[in-house]
Amino acid sequence: MKIRLIIAGLFLMLGTANLRAQFIVSDPINTATSITNSVNEIVQTSSTVSNVIKNFQEVRKVYEQGKKYYDALKAVNDMVKDARKVQETILMVGEIADIYINSYQLMLQDENFTLEELGAIAFGYGKLLQESSNLLKDLKGIVNASSLSMTDKDRMDIIDGTYVAVQRYRNLVRYYTNKNLSVSYLRAQKKGETERMLALYGNADERYW
């Protein structure tokens, strides 16, 4: 019961953290659902629009609309250790979406990728985001009434397992991004355009690679 109350309290705090966050939460389950639905909508949009440019424009629109949930979650600072891990898990899913959006919008300007390759890259991002989003369902499950029979250890095992799994996906998305950009770098190197390619993706602090 203690862990369940901690997690429920985490989501409730989203509604009182600051003025920007107050309008977001009516109850903890709806908050978790909103975050999950936002990610799932990005995934769905990625797979239903055939034109690469139009696809990304729609995906980014959905991303911007759902970003308020993650921004509100970031604003919550005073939490006990167990709730902090839940917060970090959800924010890692948001980070995966950030990497996708921020990296891919630059790839669309990168002449070293073909349209077919860009479509394949977007598909890969969508699949990784979907898998990480599915893991949030485990976190939602432990604050549902049906989980009242779970022990605190059971809940912490789910929290820890979900945290590790999402972290693995976050790292995989970084690796996926790095591998794609390394292809661009090698192609730019052959054309003597490495400086131009590197300038497109910003300085070292701005890159994910």
Rank of each mutant, 00 (worst) to 15 (best):
M1N: 12
S103M: 06
R60H: 08
I90T: 02
R168M: 11
V166L: 05
I24V: 15
T114N: 02
Q44H: 12
K54F: 01
E195T: 02
K81G: 02
L91T: 09
L186N: 03
G124D: 03
R155P: 01
K85E: 08
N171H: 10
I99P: 01
V59A: 06
Y125S: 12
L172G: 01
R174L: 14
I159N: 09
Q109I: 06
Y104V: 02
E111Y: 06
Q57E: 08
S184D: 10
A188Q: 03
V49W: 01
G15W: 12
R20M: 11
A75R: 10
R60Q: 09
E193T: 06
L198G: 00
F123M: 13
G119H: 11
T162G: 04
V164W: 03
L136G: 05
L115G: 09
N180M: 06
D82N: 14
V49Y: 09
S133D: 02
I101D: 04
Y125I: 00
D138V: 01
K190W: 03
T162K: 09
T16C: 12
G202P: 03
N134I: 02
V43Y: 01
T16D: 07
F123K: 15
I121K: 13
D160Q: 11
N144H: 10
W209Q: 06
E41P: 00
Y169L: 13
E131R: 04
D205W: 04
I99R: 07
I96W: 07
I142T: 06
R4M: 10
I121W: 03
E88G: 04
G126H: 08
Q22S: 15
V59Q: 08
M150Y: 07
N18E: 10
V183G: 03
D152S: 15
N30D: 13
L128Q: 03
Q87E: 07
V173K: 01
A75S: 15
T162H: 04
T45N: 02
D152C: 13
T162L: 03
S103V: 13
V166C: 06
T89Q: 08
K137W: 08
L172N: 04
